[in-house]
Design a protein around this nucleic acid. Structure first.
Length: 599
DNA sequence: TTGAGCACTTAGTAACGCCGCG
DNA sequence: CGCGGCGTTACTAAGTGCTCAA
């Protein structure tokens, strides 16, 4: 690495976290009441011209491993007859073979897309012979990969260590870059290997071939004065550019959607941390004016103009239910999912009265990642009447908000508050909910503190509809836990009996030895009670959590300073809340928040 | 006004690897 | 020492939102 840089970046890494700057164009509130440490330090202005860095040096990406042809004893059969495939066709076939026991390979769309793309890689002879996927037998190939992965698991400690060391070497060499005097961790320094595209939900492109990325597809971004990454011998990068208005180091265009993929920095980096901080400051700004905005949209429900009413009702949903904005999507390019602005008539049902509540709206649609959103909510009468109006004379597949899209909505929001967009409401409502719930749920009883935190976290996850598949092992592991609890209960009652008999002994003979015995037995009971309590807390927590993912909100929606302050206030070590990675990502917050921090 | 392109955040899942237990 | 369970990490898809040009 560049020498001059090395000299500079020996400065402590912490320094970089403390250099958090209020950007000129950021419009954040600068009255950071509980950010003592940041106030104490001199703030240096960061560039206002939109540049993100002035020096950037890195080693470029790690390319995907080249294809290794199968040993000749692993055969492919077509229509019952063995057939040797060309390396190109064979590679694509292995992608399919590796997924053989996955449900994907039974899906029609998947098979159709795969077969179409596979044929493109075949020689003309192969193409003329292989015309029906059903006649293809990949079993030996699939078996081979299973054996391989078994072998990998059964490797000796030594061999495993070798791999570990090699990975570590790769990480050290390619996993870091230098940006403005600091050595920073890169998030994803490997080029995505080729394979079969697996979309989420009912994706029209599932099974398509994700092609191998060559150096000629790759754009490198670094600073002019830096040592440029070298392409593999005999190859060239597509381009080397020096654009400091962006944060990425490497990019390429992916062939399925034609989207650009990037290599960027780790969340622990200055550039990501600052952005994260900025995000929460914007959400805090919303807190200051949210009542005004709410009054505004309630007024707008009465507007003469349809577009205003639609805008106001959509905003109400975004605010109340933390729905996503809902950009338009090109039909047939991806799974049919929606957000607020793209809701269709078929996604809601109106009930003037349901389950004893008036004006109930029932939502049922697929959101991001095709996760189902199902919710029944009572709404204000005006909202209900508006929805009826919006749905008049429409087909189920028509847009609910036909006079609205995210760009119109966001333009409006921008006028109401600087930096305000639809997604800020999700951040705001998530964070304020955590803060409120922590206040409500945290009691003085010490052993349930973490449970309280998780419950508050869970309230947010439910609000944001962050779901996960119930772990396959859930039922079993729950049973195991119950067994443990039962065993602990038995132990406890035994221990209690012991205490009693020890006391009885003591009564008979007042002896120092017996007195001691009673004490130790009592201690044992206490210890067991504590252990039992712990197990029961764990069981409750796990049960309540089975289909809810806490990680997403923790990582992306909850102002970490709320959690840091909570830990300080209750004397909980931060490690109980954030693991190592999370502590690195939130280092800025851990450093700045005091116990009295208010979101 | 629309649409494409681009940059960046948010998301669930699969694979990994560590730790306690028998 | 192997094994199972579980937290962590890697991976990459799928969103949001901005800009620019026709």
């Amino acid at each position: 690495m560049c020498q001059s840089v090395c000299q500079i970046f020996v400065q402590s890494h912490l320094q970089c976290k403390l250099e958090f700057i209020v950007l000129n164009n950021m419009h954040v509130n600068s009255s950071m009441s509980s950010c003592r440490s940041s106030r104490r330090r001199k703030k240096r202005m960061r560039a206002t011209d939109g540049s993100k860095w002035s020096f950037l040096e890195h080693k470029g990406p790690v390319m995907a491993a080249p294809y290794e042809p199968l040993p000749s004893n692993v055969r492919f059969f077509y229509d019952g007859k063995q057939m040797k495939l060309s390396p190109e066709a064979e590679e694509v076939a292995t992608f399919f073979a590796k997924m053989l026991d996955h449900e994907y390979t039974t899906k029609d769309t998947f098979r159709k897309n795969f077969f179409k793309d596979w044929r493109k890689e075949m020689t003309s002879e192969e193409k003329s012979k292989i015309t029906d996927l059903k006649k293809c037998n990949f079993n030996e190939m699939g078996e081979y990969f299973k054996v391989q992965s078994e072998a990998r698991k059964a490797m000796t400690k030594d061999d495993k260590l070798k791999i570990k060391v090699e990975n570590e070497r790769l990480l050290q060499e390619y996993g870091f870059c230098i940006m403005d005097n600091h050595k920073e961790r890169i998030a994803n320094f490997r080029i995505e290997p080729p394979g079969l595209f697996r979309g989420r939900g009912d994706h029209p492109k599932m099974g398509m071939l994700k092609r191998r990325i060559r150096p000629e597809d790759i754009i490198i971004n670094c600073s002019k004065g830096s040592k440029q990454p070298k392409p593999p011998t005999g190859t060239k990068w597509k381009e080397v550019r020096h654009d400091n208005k962006v944060t990425w180091l490497v990019s390429w265009t992916e062939n399925i959607q034609g989207a650009i993929k990037y290599i960027m920095l780790n969340p622990s980096s200055r550039i990501k941390g600052e952005k994260d901080w900025q995000k929460y400051e914007t959400a805090r700004n919303l807190k200051k004016c949210v009542e005004r905005l709410r009054n505004q949209y309630r007024e707008d429900w009465k507007s003469k103009e349809m577009r205003i009413r639609q805008r106001a009702v959509a905003l109400y949903f975004i605010d109340k239910l933390a729905l996503r904005a809902g950009n338009e999507k090109e039909e047939g390019e991806s799974a049919d999912t929606v957000g607020c602005c793209s809701l269709r008539v078929e996604h809601i049902n109106l009930y003037p009265e349901k389950d004893g509540q008036d004006f109930v709206v029932e939502f049922d649609f697929l959101g991001k990642d095709s996760i189902r959103y199902y919710n029944k909510v009572p709404v204000e009468k005006r909202v209900f009447k508006n929805l009826q109006l919006f749905m008049e004379n429409k087909q189920p597949e028509d847009d609910l908000f036909d006079r609205l899209n995210t760009s119109i909505l966001n333009k409006h929001l921008q006028e109401l508050m600087d930096g305000l967009t639809a997604k800020v409401f999700r951040t705001y409502n998530a964070s304020i909910t955590l803060q409120q719930q922590l206040k409500e749920l945290t009691s003085r009883k010490s052993s349930t503190k973490i449970l309280s935190y998780n419950r508050a976290n869970r309230a947010v996850a439910i609000l944001c509809n962050h779901q996960r598949a119930q772990p396959k092992t859930f039922e079993k592991s729950m049973q195991n836990l119950q067994t443990k609890i039962d065993a602990k209960k038995d132990q406890l009652s035994d221990a209690k009996r012991d205490v009693k008999s020890a006391k009885a002994d003591l009564k008979v003979r007042r002896d120092e030895r017996f007195k001691k015995a009673v004490e130790t037995k009592k201690k044992a009971v206490e210890r067991l009670e504590e252990q039992l309590m712990k197990l029961e807390v764990q069981a409750t927590d796990r049960e309540e959590n089975k289909q809810i993912a806490l990680g997403t909100s923790k990582l992306n929606y909850l102002d970490p300073r709320i959690s840091v302050a909570w830990c300080k206030k209750w004397g909980i070590p931060i490690e109980k809340i954030y693991n190592k990675t999370q502590r690195e990502k939130f280092a800025w917050a851990i450093d700045m928040a005091e116990d009295d921090y208010e979101f």
